[in-house]
Structures are given as structure tokens and as C-alpha cells.
Amino acid sequence: MNKLVPGRADLQKAEVTPEYTLSNGRRVDVRVSMPSLLVFIEVKVDASEGKKQLEDYYAALEHERSGRDGILVYLTLPGHEAPTSPVPYEHITFDQILEAWIPLSDGSDYASQYLARFLKSLALLLE
């Protein structure tokens, strides 16, 4: 399974925290904590990367993941380039999120319905 596309069981137990303050005092835009996966998402729209930002986020991710998989995501609009960095991270765009997550939004449970509404809102922004 692609680590960027969690299973339904993980998705239903996901805890999402916006503007999450890390132990080093930095704030990552979104923290998604699931039983088998911890994701830090840095959203870059009309902003540039701060000094050592990805490195600091990656260090905090490694510290917090506690045996789970961990992914640092750099999220941009389509057509925007990602920075070079010595740490591993995934550069994805908003349109890629739509493509990957739409299949998870077809359920009748609350999490699936919420995800469906979010993805529809995202699609409107990309038009």
C-alpha cells in the first residue's frame, strides 16, 4: 500500500491537528496521527521555505513517530517546484491529493463523508 494513502481503518482513527507546535518550537501546518502512520504536512502557497524548515520538521517527525511509519509532506499548488533538502520528504500537489484520496471518500461513515466534503472544497479551489 502507498504510505500516502492510508487504509480505511487508519483513516477512521486519524487525529488531525492544524498548526501543531513541535518540541523545537516550530509549527508544522498539519499533523495527522494514525495508528500506523504519522504525517507532517507543510503547505506552501504564496510563501517560501524557512531556513532549515524541512530539516527541523523531519527531526521532530523522527522523534515523535514511535515505531510508526513517518512521512514529511511538502504540499504545493500544481506547477510549483519543491526545494532541495538533505532530508527525505514527499512533494505532492493539491491535485494529486484529490486523485489519491477520492476512493477513500465513498463510504457512509462520518470520516468518509467529511473527507468527501473536504475534497469537493479542494477541487473548487483548483478550478
Score class of each variant (00 low, 15 high):
Ala59Phe: 10
Asp56Trp: 10
Ala60Tyr: 07
Asp95Gln: 06
Val87Arg: 02
Gln113Ala: 03
Val87Asp: 06
Tyr57His: 04
Gly50Arg: 10
Arg65Gly: 10
Asp56Phe: 12
Gly50Asp: 07
Ala111Gly: 03
Thr76Tyr: 06
His91Lys: 05
Ala60Leu: 13
Pro78Leu: 08
Lys52Trp: 12
Ile41Pro: 11
Glu49Cys: 12
Ala111Leu: 11
Asp46Tyr: 15
Tyr74Gly: 00
Leu75Asp: 00
Ala82Trp: 08
Pro88Gln: 08
Val73His: 06
Thr76Ile: 03
Glu64Val: 05
Ser85Arg: 12
Trp101Leu: 06
Gly70Ala: 08
Leu115Ala: 02
Tyr74Asp: 03
Ile41Met: 04
Pro83His: 09
Gln53Ala: 11
Ile97Phe: 00
Gly107Cys: 08
Tyr110Phe: 00
Ile41Phe: 01
His91Thr: 04
Ala100Gln: 13
Ser66Arg: 15
Ile92Pro: 04
Ile97Cys: 02
Ala100Val: 08
Val43Gly: 00
Glu64Gln: 12
Ala47Ser: 14
Glu81Asp: 15
Leu104Ile: 05
Tyr89Asp: 09
Lys44Gln: 02
Asp106Ser: 12
Phe118Ser: 13
Tyr74Ala: 01
Trp101Arg: 00
Lys51Phe: 10
Glu99Asp: 13
Asp106Tyr: 04
Asp46Ser: 14
Lys52His: 14
Ala116Met: 07
Ser85Cys: 15
Gln96Asn: 02
Val87Tyr: 02
Leu38Pro: 02
Glu99Trp: 15
Pro78Thr: 04
Phe94Leu: 01
Val43Ser: 02
Pro78Gly: 07
His80Met: 11
Glu49Ile: 09
Val73Leu: 06
Val39Arg: 07
Gln53Thr: 01
Asp46Glu: 13
Leu104Gly: 06
Pro83Trp: 07
Pro88Met: 04
Tyr74Met: 05
Glu62Ala: 06
Thr84Ile: 10
Ile41Thr: 11
Ala111Gln: 14
Gln53Met: 13
Ile102Glu: 15
Tyr110Met: 13
Ala60Ser: 15
Lys51Tyr: 06
Phe40Thr: 04
Ile92Asn: 03
Val87Ser: 01
Gly50His: 10
Glu90Lys: 05
Glu99Gln: 15
Pro83Cys: 08
Pro86Arg: 07
Glu99Asn: 13
Val43Thr: 08
Ala116Gln: 10
His91Trp: 11
Ile92Val: 12
Gln113Asp: 05
Glu64Trp: 07
Ala82Ile: 04
Lys44His: 01
Ala47Gly: 05
Val43Met: 10
Arg117Cys: 09
Lys51Asp: 11
Asp95Asn: 14
Ala59Lys: 15
Pro83Glu: 01
Leu115Tyr: 01
Asp56His: 14
Pro83Lys: 09
Leu75Cys: 00
Pro86Gly: 03
Val73Asp: 13
Tyr57Trp: 01
Glu64Asp: 11
Glu62Cys: 07
Phe40Ser: 03
Glu55Ile: 00
Ala59Ser: 10
Ala111Ser: 12
Tyr110Trp: 05
Ala111Tyr: 12
Ala111Thr: 13
Asp109Ala: 00
Asp109Leu: 00
Ala59Arg: 14
Asp46Trp: 15
Gly67Arg: 03
Leu61Pro: 00
Val87Ile: 01
Glu49Lys: 12
Val87Asn: 04
